[in-house]
Amino acid sequence: MPETTSAAVSELLARAREGDADALNRLYEASRPWLAIVARACLEEKLRSRVDPSDLVQQTLLEAYRAFEGFAGRTEGEWLAWLRQILLRNAVDYVRWFCTAKRGAGHVSLAGADDRSAIRCEPTADIPSPSEQAVVHEEVLRLAQAITALSDDYQQVIQLRHFEQLPFDEVAQRMQRSRPAVQMLWLRAVRRLKDLMDERC
């Protein structure tokens, strides 16, 4: 794995905007693990088996790549908020597509089409919502990378406890294990994560 975050995201952004293709690529590679985590978090479990989160990430990066010119932000926070917004729209799209596909209708019906003709389409680039403007440290991307390198069990327990913010009782239920077993798993996951982060320093 290339050491993707050695340059700060804001610097990569600036260089990418000047047409540095390499910087743009590194930007996307650095953001991929983080997006993967967001993707996993936003797809419900039963959907995750049907929609591959990595497809969602791939598609998001592809769209972001094409639309990069339209992105006006400068900071890492704005960048991630933008990517996240694209990903979430794609997720909604996917879910909708998945639900229609399941109903057996390949196409969306045309009925009642005309009364929704005035769909408002915001420019997607520069209006992250307040919660999305939280300060983002560069470390976040590195941590995301480390998390995606964990085993599936570890990733799942971290996702449930931290990203879905469930108490351990519920985590245990979801993972169909006892509460002490899940807590032990969690502890190991955190320690392993710590090791991974130390290695990369």
Binding site: E139, V140, I158
Partner: peptide, 9 residues
């Protein structure tokens, strides 16, 4: 990890 969670995850 919690900072990561608050970064939009």
């Amino acid at each position: 990890v919690e900072r990561l969670a608050q970064s939009g995850v």
